Amino acid sequence: MTRTSLTVGYVPGATPAKWARTWAQRHPEVPLELRAVAAADAAADVRDGAVDIAILRPPADTSGLAVIPLYEETTVAVVPTDHVLSAADEITAADLADEPTLLPEDDVVGWRDAPGVLLEHRPETTLAAIELVAAGLGVLMVPQSLARLYHRKDLTYRAIADAPTCPVALAFPKGEQSELVEEFIGIVRGRKASSSRGQTESAPKRTAREKTLAKQAARAAAGKVARRPGRGRR
């Protein structure tokens, strides 16, 4: 593997630290930089080469990108802790039908026909919208990871049972990839170090019969040793 470096972008709420730790254990000679990127800019950062690969929420336009789905996030409603919806463990879209709703400019849920009464003012960021929720101005719908990221003691969140989920994916430029990008993809997918690209394949596992025969041969050999006369005995 060429000893250069790898830059991994990640959007708010994504948690690449565990993969970075695995990388450091396997390739301590190859620096890996984690770079926070705005959700709206993540795809462009990959296309422009600002990052080699990114963990993002797939945009509508994925031209020029290869995208590997990772997981789906639950969509939740963020409300004040004393809000009536906080009494339930889980809510539905119908529960939000009459609620004033905030839609930030950097919204990543993209829920068409979302419930609620949309407020005319659109905060510039999700963090700004969180502040408005705390002020009692409305409800905010976000992926669960963002609700956790921007957690406050005066706010809580509830899963919306019938809301669309929010996908998270790996994105990198289409075409032939460097060994470093391929290696990071393998780590994210759970590939073990022994099965990394370029490593020789391990010996095939023995069948049950082969194991049995080997045990029998070992026992027979042990018996012969036990019956062999000791040296120096008369």
Rank of each mutant, 00 (worst) to 15 (best):
A60H: 09
A60S: 08
A60E: 15
A60M: 06
D61F: 08
D61G: 11
D61E: 15
D61W: 10
T62S: 09
T62L: 01
T62W: 00
S63Y: 00
S63H: 10
S63R: 12
G64N: 06
G64A: 04
G64V: 08
G64E: 03
L65R: 05
L65T: 08
L65D: 09
A66E: 15
A66W: 06
A66T: 13
V67T: 14
V67G: 09
V67R: 07
I68Q: 13
I68F: 06
I68R: 13
P69C: 08
P69W: 11
P69T: 02
P69D: 14
L70K: 09
L70D: 07
L70H: 10
L70F: 11
L70A: 11
L70E: 08
Y71H: 13
Y71S: 11
Y71F: 14
Y71E: 10
E72F: 10
E73A: 08
E73V: 06
T74A: 13
T74V: 14
T74N: 00
T75E: 14
T75C: 14
T75L: 14
T75P: 11
V76H: 05
V76Y: 05
V76C: 05
A77D: 08
A77K: 07
V78N: 07
V78R: 03
V78E: 08
V78M: 14
V78T: 10
V79D: 05
V79P: 10
V79K: 03
P80F: 08
P80E: 08
T81D: 14
T81S: 13
T81P: 00
T81K: 14
D82E: 10
D82M: 03
D82L: 04
D82K: 05
H83T: 00
H83N: 12
H83S: 10
V84L: 10
V84Y: 08
L85R: 09
L85D: 08
L85T: 12
L85A: 01
S86Y: 06
S86A: 15
S86R: 06
A87Y: 09
A87T: 07
A87W: 02
A87D: 07
A88I: 04
A88M: 07
A88C: 03
A88E: 13
A88P: 00
A88W: 10
D89F: 08
D89R: 01
D89E: 12
E90N: 07
E90Q: 15
E90W: 05
E90I: 14
E90G: 05
E90K: 15
I91G: 03
I91M: 02
I91R: 01
I91F: 03
I91L: 04
T92C: 05
A93L: 05
A93G: 15
A93F: 01
A93D: 12
